[in-house]
């Protein structure tokens, strides 16, 4: 039972100390937080309302005056169209450089389209090989 009494004493003392220490820490923390707070002048509700109105008024002006409607092409933002165009063109050029098969709008041998190379070859077929004047 002596042990129990000692244990109880430990509990009360221990918990008391832990709480007291942490409460002290709390107080100190609050002090640090208080000291470190950015100085902010107190403002009455009326003043803050006026301030808000002022900012809102400036914002209203700004919306009306300075920010034009973003330019659009057929209802799509112009910069977006430009981005898409540049990207597609770049992509097409890339593919052409890679000679990707998908770049063939017309299959080889098509009568609808001929590359310069093919066109030159076809044109040569139309020339006679016999010397002129014979």
């Amino acid at each position: 039972m002596e042990n129990l009494a000692w244990g109880l004493q430990m509990t009360v003392l221990g918990m008391g100390l832990v709480f007291a220490l942490l409460a002290l820490l709390w107080a100190l923390l609050m002090l640090v937080l208080y000291l470190d707070k950015e100085p902010k002048p107190p403002m009455s509700a009326h003043e803050s309302h006026a301030e808000a109105e002022r900012i809102a008024a400036v914002a209203d002006d700004a919306i009306g005056a300075q920010v034009p409607e973003p330019p659009t092409v057929n209802g799509m933002p112009a910069d977006l169209v430009a981005a898409i165009l540049v990207a597609t063109m770049k992509h097409k050029l890339t593919l052409r450089r890679q000679a990707a098969p998908i770049m063939r709008t017309y299959w080889p041998g098509s009568q609808l389209f001929a590359s310069r190379w093919v066109a030159a070859g076809r044109a040569r077929q139309n020339y006679t090989w016999q010397p002129r004047g014979r």
């Binding site: 977006l80 981005a83 597609t88 998908i102």
Partner: peptide, 28 residues
């Protein structure tokens, strides 16, 4: 392919996938 462009100081990332010779799927 993924392309990055700056248009009027705004950055765009555009992904382009070829579907056919002149048709592309573009993700902006």
């Amino acid at each position: 392919r993924r392309y990055k462009l700056d248009i009027s100081d705004r950055e765009f990332v555009v992904d382009v996938q070829e579907i056919a010779a002149d048709r592309f799927a573009v993700v902006v």
